[in-house]
Design a protein around this nucleic acid. Structure first.
Lengths: 197, 197
DNA sequence: TTGACAAAACTAATCATATTAGTTAAAATA
DNA sequence: TATTTTAACTAATATGATTAGTTTTGTCAA
């Protein structure tokens, strides 16, 4: 009986996610978290140092799950296949774990070492995927920034209900990804032509 | 002397922008707004119906300025020239009027008619710009969604300090835009080939 | 000029929330 | 079992949004 009862940071995060599911990221309050956990708000301070710290920890937790999803999706793939895979995994994460995704993107301090380190690893992974399309390191980074911008922007606009025209959003997503890959390929093409000048 | 003193919704918005410039969008409070305007917080309710309503009005005000900047930049241009122009204007707006841009993108209710109408007009304008690259209406909308995603994502990641590698962000932006345009062109190309099958 | 009216300020009060301080009970451990 | 730590609690403070009711002030017509 005294098994499941033990409170932990994980339980606090789980409760917070529940609340965000219902009320949205901005509406998270310690008062509500305490209510869900059936304790008084000050008791939470035995586990976390405040609302901002909770958000920070949620960000790290979310980033961990996200990093895992991204890495898994790309494993063993290369070229456009890998790019499609991580992009689909990205959007799947956004759709299926929206509150977690928001906890990641709206983390109070992105510079916090643990968070930043994971972010950095993710960027490295993506940069490797660009090997097929760009030779120089800086070009690969440009490509990664492009993909991240695309995915981040699409997800954000979709989440806030921004795509209002009566056109399939998933078709748009495929179209946009195709466009991006075509851009990469066309880039390759022109590079090869230059080399044979 | 009693000239400049008159309070108005414009002055309230201006004061709010000042505060956001310094403390960030989330930290806006009516208490601070009142302090800047040298009145007591309840007095604000003679002009606005609360913090959320203020944010909504700021969103509309911001969208108006943004729509103006976008439209002006594209005027008389077409094809890739127009796309580069609106993209540059977009990023310029983000950089020079950051608080306003955030007030627009984080507006409490994007469905509010006045806001949504402007948003719709902006989308129409951008869709027209895609005439050169896509024939069907739905393809043009896909293209617009791609561009918006790209710009929105790049701006958001840059604002939150997400591009950490030692690579020029403005070069990345140019690279990404080039990539996007190449994608559009390559799309055209393959469409023409198909037609001549 | 003055009295009525409307606008816009004010004070007082309420409520929700975060957070701190200090206390206590319960669990873990020596 | 005695001690120590953990994690709950109550009480209190501070900030901020918001409402109610009052007062001031500026405008405008008689």
């Amino acid at each position: 009986m005294p098994r499941q009862e033990k409170l932990s940071i994980e339980k606090i995060i789980a409760a917070s996610i529940e609340i965000i599911d219902v009320k949205g990221y901005n509406a998270l309050t310690l008062a509500d978290v305490a209510k869900v956990l059936k304790i008084k708000p000050p008791s939470l301070y035995n586990h976390i140092s405040g609302l901002d710290a909770l958000r920070q920890q949620m960000g790290h937790y979310a980033m961990t799950a996200f990093y895992d999803a991204m890495t898994t999706s790309a494993f063993g793939k290369s070229g456009s296949e890998a790019i499609y895979a991580v992009s689909d995994a990205y959007m799947q994460f956004v759709k299926e774990r929206t509150s977690l995704y928001q906890s990641m993107t709206r983390v109070p301090n992105e510079s916090e070492p643990a968070y930043a380190a994971l972010n950095q690893k993710l960027t490295s992974m993506l940069t490797q995927l660009m090997a097929h399309y760009a030779e120089s390191e800086s070009d690969r980074i440009h490509c990664v920034r492009g993909l991240r911008s695309l995915l981040y922007g699409f997800a954000a606009i979709e989440l806030e209900g921004g795509f209002r025209m009566a056109v399939s959003k998933s078709e748009s997503f495929q179209y946009i990804l195709d466009l991006y890959i075509k851009g990469l390929e066309s880039n390759c093409q022109s590079r090869k032509l230059e080399n044979n000048h």
